[in-house]
Every structure is written in C-alpha cells, then in structure tokens.
Design a protein around this nucleic acid. Structure first.
Lengths: 142, 142
DNA sequence: ATAGGAATGATTATCATTATCGTATATGTT
DNA sequence: AACATATACGATAATGATAATCATTCCTAT
C-alpha cells in the first residue's frame, strides 16, 4: 500500500467524480482499467458519472502523473496507478489479464542499443502477448 | 533484396490496387507506412485508389502474412513488409523515423520471464521512443 | 469472348476519444 | 456561513481511424 493520493497536491480540485475514479484505482480489484472499464464500474456501483468526465479525468490524472497510460493491442487505452516503478507487461490473450514484470537486463540492453544508434531513450514499451499455461483463465473479458 | 512477392502465391487475385500497394512497400523509400501514408502516396503518383481499398488491402496483406502491423504511439496502425525476421523498433519522437533492431538477449529473457510466470509467448512488441542525438532529424512528419 | 464470383470505391456506419456549452460545484474571501 | 468566480460536470455533437455496405467493375477459369 502506498500513501493515499491527495488531489490537491496534484494541483487538482477535489471533486466527487475525481475521487471516485481515483478510488477505483487505489482500492479496486484490477490495476489496469480502460476508460470504459472505469465508466461501467462506476455506473455499476451506483455512481452516476458521465463518460466524458471519465475520459477527462483519466487524461488529467495522466498529465498529473497519478496514472500511466498504456496502449496494448486493440484500440483503447488502459490506465494504471503510477507507482513510480517502471515495469513492462504480459497480457493474456485469452482473458486480458495483465501481469507486470521488470527485468534489469532488458532495460539496460535497451539503453545500450539506443545509444549505439545515436538515440537517447525517452520512453519505451514492452508488451508480451501470451497464453496462460498453468493458470486458469477466466476466459475472455472480465 | 528479397524475392518479389507474387500475390497469386498468397492466395490473392492480382489486381491493380493490390499491385500498387505492394509496390510501395517493395520499392518505396520508406519501410513503415500507415494507411493514410499509402493512400496519399498513391494519389500523389497519380494512381487513383479508394481509401477503403487501401484499408482492405492492407488488412488482407497482413492476414496473408505479406505485411506486419505495428501499433506505435498514436492512433494509427503502421505496416511494413514481412521479411520473416522478427525485430523491434526505435521510433524517433521528433521525426517519426523508425529504426529496427534485434537483440537475442532481450528475446531470450522475454521467453524466460514469460515461462517463469506460466505463460507461453504468442507475440510481443518492444518499442523504444527516443530522440536522435547524433542524427539530424528532418523534423516532424515526412 | 463470356460468366460468375470476387474486388473496387463512394459512401455510410462504428468505435474510441475529444470538443462544446450550458449548468452545477469547489474553494478562497468576506 | 454565504458569496463570487473560476473550474468541473455531463449531455451531446464532433472528430479521426477504421470497418461495413452495396452497386458497379474487373480478374480468371471455361
């Protein structure tokens, strides 16, 4: 558990919709959520927010550094709490579950490769799309 | 230079629009093209194809294994000739130029990491977003 | 050359996301 | 606590990339 996030500190007014969205990421059961995921979860728990607000808030949270945006395969963005530690992702192509990993060797080789070619790395994304072998997938979409 | 591709062998009728699109990838100056890139290049060279056809043909070529689709940052798909050799990409965030690289160490560590977690890798994408340091960027969009 | 199915292209539809705009609300100041 | 005001909200329209529709045109085997 990390410290609870205070919207004020992020330069954002503390409004109901924002608190609800933030709460989903801090206390929800899934770390990785799309805009529609967030919207549906809020509606499902009786919280009446607009879809436009969800998109707006997610983008603001991203800009404020509270959330990180990912582009996995498919057309929609997925967000997760920014916990400061960069990591990459394994995405199950059966159930869309996302697992995180970090590998120092991969990280350093990326920097080395970029440097050798005259680039300075600003950002990078590594996504592994895979099937669970041991694990039981709850099959397609949660 | 690889062997020229014959549409027939890929199970596709040999039509003018398809030949023109294929030609762009085989003989054009840029390996990585979006649907709109292709559309504009064809219009620019006096070839009158429909945008719908471009999208259709790109998807068919991808399914036939002639092209590979990539999702770099941003909302549009980018395609390149499938030359059989998997590789990852460095994308210049100033000029969108794309450079390819392959690193056996990174590849094997990915497989190892996935296996340790009970996944069998189906696919993966590694994109490094960077600035040219030595190279002169022709600045934003070609 | 012909027939018939597949391909084309103009257009419409779709899906995720963003912009608009009138109304509602949070917060610093009385 | 009530106010004033900038800001946020939410319904809806707009956008941009891509897919679907469908009448017309074009390959290819006969």
């Amino acid at each position: 558990m990390s410290q609870p996030i205070h919207l004020k500190n992020a330069g954002l007014k503390s409004t109901l919709p924002r608190l609800k969205v933030l709460n989903l990421f801090e206390n929800g059961d899934e770390r990785h959520l799309s805009a529609e995921d967030v919207y549906k979860k809020l509606l499902g728990s009786g919280d009446d927010v607009g879809l436009a607000t969800v998109y707006r808030v997610l983008t603001q949270f991203e800009q404020a550094g509270l959330l990180v945006r990912h582009h996995f395969e498919g057309d929609k963005s997925v967000f997760e709490l920014n916990q400061g530690k960069h990591h990459d992702h394994i995405v199950c192509i059966q159930c869309d579950r996302v697992e995180e990993f970090y590998d120092a060797t991969i990280e350093s080789r990326q920097r080395k490769i970029a440097a050798e070619r005259g680039f300075s790395v600003q950002d990078h994304s590594l996504n592994i799309y895979a099937n669970c072998t041991k694990l039981k997938c709850p099959n397609k979409r949660i």
